[in-house]
Design a protein around this nucleic acid. Structure first.
Lengths: 216, 216
DNA sequence: GTCTATAGGTTGATAGAC
DNA sequence: GTCTATCAACCTATAGAC
């Protein structure tokens, strides 16, 4: 009876849940430890007892969600076999970000992209470098006409579309006057994969394609 | 002699320059007015005298760069004539963001996307709603097979690629081990337009294209 | 318009009782 | 492990001399 499946979250976990929610909504600096402890219903001193500093709490909150996402990405890529299609590769990379977590962990990870401080960039690199290399290899195999440089650029563009979706998807119903509905996740994922796959399949830019400076 | 071309910036302008630089680098909440006045070499009270509050200083800094960008976007779209190509439309939308400003104003505007507070979203909408409508119309004309919904989604994806480039382009040389060089702006712009144009030209997703849940 | 000084509030982190 | 109480530092904004 000490670890029943439906146990009540302990203090440490409650802090992580609240941190994930509030950091994800408002970012690192705009969220105070007092906001977090109030949301979690725990004492202020508990956060320092369990996590020492605000920074390491942020790291812990990110790592808790990032690790399963990256594990799932590799799983899906492996499951697609030795010669995955472009769509399979993109789905393996993107779909683990579309699962719904209790506190919308997605917002938290989108904040990583928006936090300029160096410690967050290091953390991002630490958690993603290996995964990115694995996916670049798969993409090179699926798109032999593209250089590694070109693939890295296009993966960056794709990650940007995804990050923007996570960070700002909620404003889309407003600016589209109801036409775009980000809460239909399978449809959004399919749209993103369609868009990115076509972008990846475009002929590589060869130095100048008449797009030099400006239009006209 | 009161308004010679190479005048020295006055206090108000020095504050705006410093605010643009620091807000762009570190975001709104992580930047204090003391950081800004120190960078500008002016007194702390000057910022309240000229801009009242920190929030309205942020708004002023954004508006100063946003307005010329949006004016240039419309100019370029108009200059492309009555039936612009997809590439001309995308260049009109994206290229004004690639001009170099003294303090890298681009970082500032990428922070808008990363700032969750409602006042920034309103400000973003206020400055962009009209421009977006104009570009959606042009895109619909160039891509008659796409619904307005589909165009809005793909414009959102494109804006995400652009925003990610502005906000996180500086990490690309690191994670690409030198392969990707974001400082070659014409090349980056051409790559982004190539990628986005192919994405826009993809067949519309019709409800389910075998990309339902996950890979495999 | 520009300064000094300071009010008034919030923050992250810790000390120490229980 | 969890609490109360508190410290020292920082913040935005303003009042008032010049």
């Amino acid at each position: 009876m000490s670890n029943t499946p439906q146990r009540v979250p302990d203090t440490k976990e409650r802090i992580l849940d609240a941190a994930e929610k509030l950091f994800g909504q408002n970012g690192f600096t705009a969220t105070s430890l007092r906001d977090i402890t109030a949301e979690a219903g725990v004492n202020l001193a508990a956060v320092n007892y369990h996590f020492q500093t605000k920074e390491s709490l942020f790291e812990a909150a990110i790592a808790r969600r990032m690790e399963p996402v990256n594990r799932r990405r590799i799983e899906l890529l492996d499951a697609a076999g030795a010669n995955p299609t472009l769509e399979q590769i993109l789905l393996a990379f993107l779909s683990p970000l579309f699962v719904r977590h209790p506190n919308e962990a997605i917002g938290l990870m989108s904040q990583i992209l928006a936090t300029p401080d160096s410690f967050v960039r290091q953390l991002f690199k630490k958690h993603l470098a290996g995964v990115v290399n694995r996916f670049v290899e798969a993409l090179q195999q699926a798109l032999p006409n593209l250089t590694r440089t070109e693939i890295l650029w296009r993966l960056h563009f794709t990650a940007g579309s995804m990050a923007h979706l996570m960070a700002r998807g909620s404003v889309l119903p407003e600016i589209s006057e109801g036409l775009c509905n980000p809460s239909d996740r399978p449809a959004v994922l399919a749209r993103l994969v369609t868009f990115a796959a076509a972008g990846f399949r475009a002929d590589a830019w060869g130095g100048d394609a008449g797009l030099g400076g400006e239009a006209a």
